[in-house]
Structure formats: C-alpha cells, structure tokens
Amino acid sequence: MTEAAAPNWPDDIYRALKGAGVRQVAHVPDAGHARLIKSCDADNDMQVVTLTTEEEGVAMLCGAHLGGERGVLLVQSSGVGNCINMLSLPQTCRMPFLMVVTMRGEYGEFNPWQNAMGLATEAVLEAMHVTCYRCDRPEDVGPTVANAARYTFEGGRPVAVLLSQRLIGAKAFVNE
C-alpha cells in the first residue's frame, strides 16, 4: 500500500459502527484493529471488552442482543477458528451477529503459521452460515461495514466483514 492511499478506513469503521448504534465492542486485539480499538476506548457510549479468546465475544454479543444492545466482535482471521462451535448460538437462535476480521495468511504474508487459518477463514464462516463481505479497497470499508450492520441487525443473519491483507498491508517483521 502506498502512503498516498494510507486511508482513514479505521475511522470509517468507527463511524459506521456508531451509525449502527453499536454499544458493545468485544475484541482480541490485532494490529489492524489497533486504531479502531483506540477510538472505541475513547467513546463513553461504548463498552469495550478485551477477551481471552474469540468465542467469548460471540457469546457476549448474543447476551447483549438478549438485553437489547448491539455489538461488534473485532478479531484476526486466526481467531475465527476459535469461534466455530460458538457460532451455533446466533445461527440456532436467529440472532444478529457482526464481526470484523483482519486477514492474515494472504497477500504478502511473511509468517507461514498464519496461512492455514487465513486461507480457511471464509470457508469456515460460510460453513457456519455467516455471510462474508470482503474488502480490498479502503474506500469500500466504511460502506461495507455500514451495510453489514444493516444486514445483520435488520435481517437477523450473522455477517462478517473481512479486511484483506492487501487492504491492511502485510506485517513487516522488521525492528524499528
């Protein structure tokens, strides 16, 4: 990614989440989500919950839905694998469920340990009836998250936005 294209897409996600009325933000941190997490932390109307493992967030957001609040789960692609059985919860209960996934194991990946789950992420989500919207271009991110939120909170079907490694930029693994 060139500097000129260095985008404000994390801020676009934040605005889309605010526009959708999201109040609970569960995450296992990823570098790609760092700026968004910071924005959410600074927002007094958002409850930010740092998880020990990603499936906790699936259950938490289903509890939030029982209580009438909207939420989002922010994870890296490796964490999608941890969520598999817990995704039976929104599917079985026909609950809305929104996740935003930063992708690893694709375009420019340096660490081969990321490839297995990264390459399986979309198939795993679709096998668990989670609709996937993939973003490769910064200008698509905000509208995609806004429409994913609308799709799940109005339509009731789980949805994941996959932020591709081409969009985020591959992790550098160099000492600064």
Binding site: R23, Q24, Q47, V49, E56, G57, A59, M60, L61, C62, G63, A64, H65, L66, G67, G68, E69, G71, L89
Partner: peptide, 10 residues
C-alpha cells in the same frame, strides 16, 4: 460471557 453481555446491556 452471555451473562456479561446481558449484564452490560441491562
């Protein structure tokens, strides 16, 4: 964790 999400919402 369902309990946590519910408790925060209510």
């Amino acid at each position: 964790m369902m309990g946590l999400g519910l408790a925060l919402a209510q």
